[in-house]
């Protein structure tokens, strides 16, 4: 446990040079909100956050940090857990900030419970897309792996588009709301599969 927390702390020090880029999403949305835009802060910020997953991988590759990992007395799986934990922590902070901003700038009254459900749904979609992206980055590296998140994203849009075209979008969203426990469950399952896949890929990697 202590190891994983150390690996988490390590990721914060790792992305030190790119820290300002993490705040970019927040700044951009804040700017839009000030200008009176109605864009959904949560969706926008989480979408921008998807590209920040690259940063720790970019820094690793650029500096050949694998040699550090190779000589450090830390298990490779612990490094993976630390990386996922780092991304989840950053995302949670981002998500909370986005919701607060949305609340601060909201022009109409929001029904908290409805809003939380839709916000949580978006956050879960984000986590699922992340679950696809991370193993891709471990396997293919940053240059090829950065496009891997867009495949499920595009698929998602196609599914939504088709659902809309076949007019089952509303009934589907009602069904999801009624069985909302499925959402975090599926998210956790997908994330767990993602972690074990990443561990397998990273364990085989030659430093």
């Amino acid at each position: 446990m202590k190891d994983i927390l150390n690996a988490l702390r390590f990721n914060f020090i790792l992305v030190k040079p790119y820290l300002r880029y993490y705040l970019l999403g927040f700044v951009v949305v804040f700017f839009f909100k000030i200008m009176g835009s109605e864009i959904d802060a949560v969706s926008f910020m989480l979408f921008m956050l998807l590209s920040t997953h690259l940063y720790p991988f970019q820094l690793e590759e650029k500096n050949d940090l694998y040699r550090l990992y190779g000589i450090a007395p830390i298990k490779r799986s612990v490094l993976i857990f630390g990386r996922y934990l780092f991304i989840i922590v950053i995302s949670l902070i981002d998500w909370l900030l986005a919701m607060m901003m949305e609340y601060a700038f909201s022009k109409s009254t929001i029904i908290i419970s409805d809003y939380l459900i839709s916000s949580l749904f978006i956050f879960s979609i984000f986590l699922i897309l992340t679950a696809f992206e991370i193993p891709g980055l471990y396997k293919l590296g940053v240059i090829k792996g950065r496009w891997i998140v867009y495949v499920p994203l595009v698929l998602m849009f196609i599914i939504v588009f088709l659902a809309d075209a076949f007019q089952i979008l509303e009934s589907t969203s009602h069904w999801i709301t009624a069985n909302f426990w499925l959402v975090p469950t599926v998210t956790i399952i997908v994330l767990s599969l993602s972690v074990s896949l990443s561990v397998r890929i990273f364990n085989r990697k030659e430093f």
Partner: peptide, 15 residues
């Protein structure tokens, strides 16, 4: 070296 080139020597201590 096997560090992030933007790190300071103090950062290395923490890592």
């Amino acid at each position: 070296h096997y560090f992030v080139d933007e790190w300071t020597l103090n950062d290395i201590n923490r890592v």
